[in-house]
Write a protein that binds this DNA or RNA. Structure first.
Lengths: 352, 352
DNA sequence: TTGTAGGCGTTATCAT
DNA sequence: ATGATAACGCCTACAA
């Protein structure tokens, strides 16, 4: 009988060795370029490998060598457009190094986060990259004892095996708010992010700071709670309208909130930016295709991802790395415009 | 000297056994629930595990057992909003089964696709899910000999280790086009997807079929090539305008193209849907937040992801599975409206 | 340069 | 019920 439908007869290094008439170690050496081998044998082995379609068993290799050439990457949500670019950057950055990324998400749950990190360790990843880790610093230090750890979008005490690459959310939010102020806006509403997110708090702080610097009193009436999601933006915007406070601009703590706010404004029959200026935060890929294109604070996530990939590899190789806080830049598009105090919130000119 | 900064002294099963005063096999049995063990020993082992913070080495386990509890998931681009929901569905679907997903992307390159699958096999994944695999069927069959393979968004000859879950793109495109026709549109432009994508072709076919059924002659002048990306939508729309042919609606082969088209229309000073009706395909999460919310064909990617997760697990367990083609549903929102033949492409009423 | 042998941390097959 | 013991597939001194 022929084993047609049977489980694949996975070829092993030993069989290759036998087929090529050499010892297993020689095959291993050729595979890893660990030592020079006679051209003749080299060729024989390569042919055998090709003929049998041999692929080294990663598990066995990892067990024996103690390295897996794998980087664990923890995101909060794989499906978020925000993380997507980050992952792409990491993947691209890693592709040239021989490491493979293992993406998982923890759904903003600290418990999941721990479970995922445990998994990474159980899988013996060579390094880990955490996007917006929520874990306390002590835990991070603890995990970093198993493999180098790089935390993005957050600042922690760095060491040889633990590094962080903070983003200047405060500065970004400040710039965005200042831009609105420069355009003549005085009543600027703010849709906040989750109150327990460090970066959301920083963005609120940046907003307040810019107001203060411009001598504009902070008005709690103009601040509404969002959740970094579109639905939260919709709800917050509705509450803002319902409250009746006047405002000529809205600064949203992230683009997704801005999408939601924009929808509410649209359904309200108001125009952006003629009636209300709108600013987001993140610069998601689709933000430049919003109608009109969204003015927002750009986080160079793709580039950060690449940097992180390089960084973690350097850490694994025990090379020193220097990460400096990344500046965020305001991207002015078409949802903001100069505010003439005389204007009312009513439509005045024919829209395009 | 104390090894403070040293590599973690990874605890092994053997050490746990020693600490608990039992044999390694007993620990293993407790870990896997393979056999009943005396409560006393059970407890001793559990305490040792907790005390040493022991985590089984996944690699060793995989080597010995031949299973890795890992599912390889191949996407074309991790960063695409389109795949994001799919991944989330898969992750959620898998979370209850004890399997972990290994996400990788092949960037629409067949070469990369093969390389990724080889990696999966080298890592000894227990099963694979491919989103929009481009590989020819023979290769798929070949790979499926190593581990069960589930192909999404495509139809292949099914077997015990190879299954597919096709999506009815043709029907979806037909419904969308018919919707426009029902609204009185006769001159309906089409922005196509990559000519080498099976689903893009099916969508074009659906468009043509609906036209034909309605007795409307197909006009090549109204079809422009896109690339499934926003930029392609922008360019295609511009070419459509430049050509000068009249049309009252545009059907885009995917939402991202629609975003691009919508931007061009906006910059052109025309309104949606007053001047031009617009329909997309996919129903990305952000599409309901477009201004105005986009009418589109919904692919239940999240649900499909969950189904796929369950499906692959069943295949691994050698349970029979039955996958039927998934219908796509038209979601009518605010970018389409009835077309009055008398209208011209000029603005007529004041926009909101 | 090349081969031999031991070990990596589990699981699984036997006995007991 | 529990404990030896042999794989699992590869790497790496060590020896030749």
């Amino acid at each position: 009988m022929i084993d047609d439908d049977a489980t694949p007869p996975n070829v092993t290094l030993e069989e290759i060795a036998r087929a090529a008439g050499v010892s297993p170690s020689t095959v291993s050496r050729i595979l890893n370029g660990t030592a020079r081998v006679l051209p003749a044998k080299q060729k024989a082995v390569e042919q055998a490998i090709a003929r049998f379609n041999y692929r080294p068993n990663v598990l066995a290799r990892g067990l024996a060598s103690g390295k897996t050439d794998t980087i664990g990457v923890l995101t909060q949500t794989v499906s978020s457009p925000f993380y997507a670019e980050w992952l792409r950057g990491i993947e691209d950055g890693l592709s040239e190094t021989g490491y493979t990324a293992l993406f998982v998400s923890s759904r903003w749950s600290i418990k999941d986060e721990m479970a995922r990190l445990e998994q990474f360790i159980a899988r013996r990843v060579d390094g880990m990259i955490l996007l917006h880790a929520q874990l306390d610093e002590a835990s991070l230090i603890d995990y970093s004892r198993h493999a180098p750890l790089l935390v993005l979008g957050r600042s922690v005490q760095n060491s040889a095996s633990l590094a962080s690459l903070p983003l200047d959310n405060l500065q970004g939010a400040r710039d965005a708010t200042r831009h609105l102020i420069d355009q003549g806006h005085r009543r600027i509403a703010f849709i906040a992010g989750p109150p327990n997110h460090e970066d959301a708090i920083e963005r609120l702080d940046g907003y307040r700071m810019a107001l203060e610097e411009a001598g504009i009193a902070f008005d709690a009436e103009l601040v509404e709670q969002g959740d970094y999601l579109e639905t939260g933006g919709v709800a917050a915007m509705e509450r803002l309208f319902a409250r009746g406070s006047s405002f000529s601009a809205v600064f949203c703590s992230n683009d997704q909130s801005a999408y939601g706010a924009r929808l509410t404004i649209f359904h309200r029959g108001l125009r952006v930016p003629e009636d209300i200026s709108l600013v987001g935060f993140d610069d998601l890929p689709t933000s430049s295709y919003m109608t009109p294109p969204l003015t927002t604070v750009r986080q160079p996530t793709y580039e950060i991802g690449r940097l992180a990939a390089q960084g973690i590899v350097q850490m694994i190789r025990k090379q020193p790395i220097a990460l400096k806080t990344i500046p965020l830049t305001l991207v002015i598009r078409e949802t903001t415009r100069r505010w003439a105090p005389a204007s009312t919130a009513k439509a005045r000119r024919t829209s395009r």
